[in-house]
Structures are given as structure tokens and as C-alpha cells.
Design a protein around this nucleic acid. Structure first.
Lengths: 145, 145
DNA sequence: GGACAATGGTTGTATATACACATATCGTAT
DNA sequence: ATACGATATGTGTATATACAACCATTGTCC
């Protein structure tokens, strides 16, 4: 099973970036035809989970730079899947999933499940929790280093 | 230790991408002033390790799409750090580290070490081998899924 | 209550990444 | 030898990512 592992890299950053590319390629292939990319799916999923949220909160959750977020959200808004309102604090932008956004997310979800399933069955069981839990710790550590 | 972990995400792809962003940000910050980015450092390191190599071999090692590689190598060549030759097979491009490339790599290396150290001291020990070994398995699995 | 730091977001610019498609070369079967 | 599929790479286009610099708003301190 680790028979088809790639060679180990000395650099932790190179290592995680390589794995992220490989995993992303798998998910993108599965999401073909849903009209959304992995990044967009992730944003819709985050909004579904958190409910209406200030932009900065999304950036926190996903460790996404504010300027990146600013641009990746725009196409979603343009497609009518999310909607912006200004909060009491006029600087703040709050995002809400629209019904269309909810539908799009629901439509993509089964294919996302399939991608998850496909990856999971290719991994030893320990590696799955590694992806979900341990990498949350790694992200937190890197962020505050 | 996991006290400062970020919230767990349901999606393995989102999870690894988030961690990759966080780790990348840390390394980039450290590599400030070397004149190279993490991606470029990784390519120089790979060439150092493998010796003169066909472009496709680099793509294999790093799970990088061929078209991506084509473009990320170009700036390195332009800077004179790597050098291309055509092999016996005229389609093939073989890349070699130039002396300047070796110097640049050597100069960046201590700062890279510092980034590695900084991340490592923020992690529980198991998480380090996770990054280096287990993610090599994950990358391999995702790639062949 | 006005100066000023802090906070939330956007724009200009640059790199990273990959898909669809095109091009050149190679190997092989006839 | 030629035709044809396979392989190695490059181009056009599009998204993802982030730094530096910026603008707008808020909060705070004298």
C-alpha cells in the first residue's frame, strides 16, 4: 500500500505542497461538470457550515489571505451563489449563501463524496485522520509560528 | 499543542490545501531576501538531489503537471541557475544546475533550515514524520487513484 | 473633538497551477 | 520507407495565491 508512495522529500513545505497538488488533481477530476472548482466548493461548504459570516472569518477558517479571498469570492457572487451585505460596522462585508448557492452546493456534493471515497479507499486508515485532524494542527502551528 | 489547531474541515482536499497554504506562508516569510520562492527552491533542491534530469522526471518527483513545470522552470533558466540541453532523444529536455544555481541554492539553504526548524519546534514530533513520510504515501495514493 | 493607530477590504502586480490543444520527435508495424 | 500511435514539451487561457500599497471606517487618547 505504501508500495506506490512517491519518494520522500527533505523539505516539509515541498512535501505538503506536492501532496496538496496530487489530492487537488483527484478532486478536480471528480468535480468536472459541476461547474465549480475545489476552491469554490470549499467556500460554499464553509458558508454552509458557518452561516452568514464576515469575510475575515472565512479567511481565518481557511488560512486564506484577505486579498486572495477578495478575488475568489467575486466569481461566486457574480454567479449568484453568495450575497454580500454590509454589517453594522460599515467596513465589514458579510456573506450569505443564496438559495441558488445552496442548490449548486447540493448538486456538487455527491461528486465530492465520491472523490473523498476514492481517496479514502486508496489510503491506509490512519492516513485519513491524518488528513482531517493532524493537518488541522499543522496548519494552526504554521500559522502562529 | 493541538491547543492552537484550526477547526477541523470535513473535506480532505480543503484540509490539505489549507495546511499547505499555512506552511507555505511560513517558508516564504523565511526565504524573504534570498531572491527565490519556495517553488524555485524546491526545484533547485530536486536538481541537486537527482543530478541532471529530464524535465519529465522532475514532474514525476514533484507531482507537477508538465505544463506547470514548463513555465516554472523558465525563470530559473532566465536567471542562469539551471541550463537546458537536448538529449539523444531530441524531444527530451535535460536540466542541469549551473554553478550560479548551486551558489544560489547554498545561500538560501540556511534560511530554509530555519523555516524547517521553526515549523518543527511548533509541532508534536509525530507530526514531523507525518509531513515527510505519510504525505509521500498520500501523494502517491492520490496520484494513482 | 481632532489626531492617529488599528481594522476590514480592494487594486496593482507577480507567481503557481493546470486543462485543452498544438507541435515535434520517436518507435513500430506494415 | 511510410503511416500512425505514443511520448516530451510548449501555448492559449483561466483560476489560485499572496505581497505592497491603498482607501475607508472605527476606536482611542489627549
Amino acid at each position: 500500500m505504501a508500495a506506490d508512495a512517491l519518494p520522500t522529500l527533505a523539505c516539509a513545505c515541498a512535501s505538503i505542497r506536492r501532496a496538496a497538488r496530487a489530492v487537488t488533481q483527484l478532486y478536480e477530476a471528480e468535480l468536472q461538470g459541476t461547474g465549480i472548482r475545489v476552491t469554490q466548493f470549499t467556500l460554499l461548504q464553509a458558508l454552509q457550515r458557518m452561516g452568514p459570516s464576515p469575510q475575515a472569518a472565512l479567511g481565518e477558517l481557511l488560512a486564506l489571505d484577505a486579498t486572495t479571498l477578495s478575488r475568489t469570492l467575486r466569481p461566486l457572487a457574480r454567479s449568484g451563489w453568495i450575497h454580500a451585505t454590509r454589517g453594522a460596522d460599515r467596513r465589514e462585508v458579510r456573506w450569505t449563501l443564496t438559495p441558488a448557492g445552496r442548490r449548486r452546493f447540493a448538486r456538487a456534493r455527491p461528486l465530492w463524496e465520491r472523490a473523498q471515497g476514492r481517496l479514502r479507499t486508496r489510503l491506509r486508515p490512519e492516513h485519513w485522520s491524518l488528513l482531517l485532524q493532524d493537518l488541522a494542527a499543522v496548519a494552526g502551528a504554521a500559522r502562529r509560528a
